[in-house]
Simulated scan of single mutants.
Amino acid sequence: MKGLTDGPAGSCRDGRADAQEPGAAGEAGAEEGAGEGAGGAQATITLSGEGACIAEARRCAAAFFTRGGAARHRPTVPERVVGLVQLVVSELVTNACKYAYGPVVLRLRLAGAVVEVEVRDSAPVFPTAQAPDPHRVGRHGLEIVRAVASVLAVRGERDGKTVIAHIPLGPGPAADTPATRPDTTTV
């Protein structure tokens, strides 16, 4: 699996895509700019699915805003939003690494007034957020994502699932009313 779109894969280092197969020399495969157009910038990164890929996913998320396609479309994304996207990416990729096997596909996309974060993995079981519990150690990832995202949803795939989170770029109704697909379940 190279990613959600066809095309060459490479490693995400400082927001640039280097030509190489996922898992060859680097941890991640990236397809920067795949799907750029009217909707904005997008990057698709294929991660190994092993623990070390979580840090790589965070670096790729930051690079998407600094040197990647997003900087060309919207060069002034607030640092707070970049940090929230990194947090959401970290939590969703951690869950994918913990509960699924094989590669994890991360897709970032600017879509109007939101940053769409999608994490696809091979586990068919949909995640469920637990009730808040200040005494529980760990397992707060979906609670965190739900608290910062305007949308948190899951879409079943033929070979797993995709978890979708929308992070608003700023206040306003456009950030809270993204389009949803009928085959998507809100978490």
Rank of each mutant, 00 (worst) to 15 (best):
I144E: 05
P168T: 02
P173V: 12
G26M: 11
T177W: 11
R72S: 10
A63C: 03
R136K: 14
A129G: 11
G51C: 01
V115I: 15
D18A: 02
A71L: 05
C97H: 04
V77R: 04
A9Q: 07
A34V: 14
A55M: 07
V137D: 12
A96Q: 06
P75S: 12
C97S: 06
G160Y: 11
V187K: 00
A9P: 01
R146Q: 13
V89P: 06
I45R: 00
T186N: 06
G7H: 00
R58Q: 15
Q42T: 11
L47D: 00
M1V: 08
D18F: 06
R146S: 14
S150F: 06
V148Q: 02
V88C: 14
Q130M: 09
L87W: 09
V154Q: 14
G10C: 09
C12N: 11
T46I: 05
V119A: 05
V88E: 08
E36L: 09
Y99G: 01
L106Q: 02
T128Y: 08
Q20I: 00
G3Y: 09
V115N: 00
Q86I: 03
E50V: 04
S90A: 15
G23F: 07
G37E: 10
R59L: 12
Y101C: 00
P127A: 12
R181Q: 14
R58H: 04
E21W: 08
G29C: 09
A25K: 00
R109S: 15
A113L: 08
R74T: 10
R158Y: 03
G39F: 12
T128F: 11
A62N: 11
G49L: 08
Y99Q: 04
A153W: 03
H73Y: 15
G10K: 01
I164K: 02
A63M: 03
A70T: 01
M1D: 11
P178E: 05
R155G: 13
V187Q: 04
G37P: 12
R74N: 09
T46M: 05
V125T: 14
T177E: 14
G138P: 10
D18L: 08
F126M: 14
V151K: 07
A24V: 06
A165Q: 01
C60F: 04
V117F: 08
R16Q: 06
Q20L: 00
A62R: 15
R139L: 14
A24D: 08
K2T: 09
G7F: 01
L169K: 05
C60M: 05
S90W: 03
F126H: 13
L142Y: 15
L110T: 02
G102Q: 01
V119W: 09
E36S: 08
G40Q: 13
L4N: 05
E32Q: 03
L92E: 06
D121F: 07
E118V: 10
